[in-house]
Design a protein around this nucleic acid. Structure first.
Lengths: 236, 236
DNA sequence: CGTTCCCTTGAGTAGTTTCAATACTTGTGG
DNA sequence: CCACAAGTATTGAAACTACTCAAGGGAACG
């Protein structure tokens, strides 16, 4: 819910923070939630990243990325079972919220319910942008778009840095997210480096000029519903 | 909400149907909702299809498809502004539901609120599957997957036919949905016809063997949360 | 200090795009 | 009913992009 901070009062923010019943440290790659399993609690990502994985038969593909402050499996609350796996990326800290507790708060605070709903809608909006990206852009622009999005989302939760960030993905994982192969991703990253100066190696992006990166892939952050243009429904 | 019929009581279904304040006929291609515009009502697709479009600068791309019974812009309720356009596909009939009315019902019927939420989560699940499909499948398998999904979704709202359906898309639009070109889509459709017997021409799919089509693209409908394996949260 | 995983590079192959030309469908007005 | 126009679908060939296989170099971890 971190990304909704501008839409929440201090009271509401405390209400959400108080929902967390336990905190855990997770090792890199550890599962946060698994496909098909019935969920009795949901997870807030307090620190680190998480990936969504869909795999049938062959290698699983990465179909989503969550950053600190995100509710990663709020779907489980309404859907009971998840359709995909969620894994920690690098070392993470998570908080668990029981569905029973969530239900109590939601029934008494309709506005908070709408905020939780908004949170999942934001994820849906991001997924539509990923579809758009996969349909329309080449490999180098796709990965640039991923970097722009992560930079922007980190900025929305106060973790933004102007010259890059740590994102513990391998090039093979980046390739999976961009619908290409590890070898081709390596070449795409070199083209990106030559064109924009942004270099990614061993889970670290160094980017001297974010604007240049955004120009390279025609990045428009409107779909992230950040403070400014588009805002969630007002309180009341 | 048509697709949730199995999760709703008759009373709840009537409650949703009574929400509809006005019905309209739409001409092919007519806009249902536009990016950026503030929405005061949401739309249920009563008959026909709708597409979601994202376009920045160049040609817009199709990033989503809705069938009869779907709430097409429920996002607008929580998000106020949409991040993309929604257009009618072929002749459609829609119903409008004011947000004021929606809010009333939601605050009094928490379970109904969860059903609406579930409806948007189902769209999100479908979008994740689209991402997976674009990342991992070739053009012929992608379009086969689209056909399987539409067939399944029509079946979920009682409009299923064993030998195909009318889907008023051009090959250029299918290409847009599958991240390829119109020319290549034509070739992909021929390969699909040769491999499975399913032929698509001028907005009509003729498919003698749906199972064969499903096998061709390794289609698994679990992500649609149909009656069976995965179900929304129970009432109460 | 070596093993393992990750990244890079090259060369050949397969798949996709582009451009351009032709044919088919549908709808319109003579 | 036919002719025409506009949109839609198919085909071919050349250029391009991406994939695969394979080998070598580099970073991180024990």
């Amino acid at each position: 819910m971190g990304r909704l901070r501008d839409a929440m009062t201090d009271q509401e923010r405390h209400l959400v923070e108080d929902l967390i019943e336990s905190e855990h440290e997770l090792a890199p790659g550890e599962a946060i939630a698994c496909r098909g399993q019935e969920t009795v609690s949901s997870t807030i990502l307090i620190e680190g990243f998480a990936i969504r994985l869909i795999g049938r038969g062959g290698e699983p593909h990465i179909v989503g990325l969550q950053v600190a402050g995100d509710f990663v499996d709020l779907h489980g609350f309404a859907l009971v079972r998840l359709d995909h796996d969620i894994h920690a990326l690098g070392r993470t800290r998570i908080g668990r919220v029981s569905h029973a507790r969530l239900r109590q708060v939601i029934d008494r605070q309709p506005y908070l319910a709408r905020l939780l709903w908004f949170s999942t809608l934001l994820d849906a909006s991001i997924q539509r942008e990923w579809i758009f990206k996969l349909e329309g852009l080449g490999a180098a622009q796709r990965v640039a778009h991923v970097f722009c999005e992560v930079s922007w989302r980190l900025g929305m939760v106060g973790l933004g840095r102007p010259d890059g960030f740590i994102l513990p993905l391998t090039q093979a994982q980046l390739a999976s997210m961009c619908g290409t192969t590890a070898v081709h991703m390596s070449r795409a990253l070199r083209r990106l480096r030559d064109a924009t100066g942004a270099s990614f190696r061993h889970g670290k992006l160094h980017c001297p000029d974010m604007k240049e990166l955004a120009r390279f892939c025609d990045f428009n952050p409107a779909y992230l519903y950040g403070p400014g243009e588009m805002q969630p429904a007002s309180s009341g």
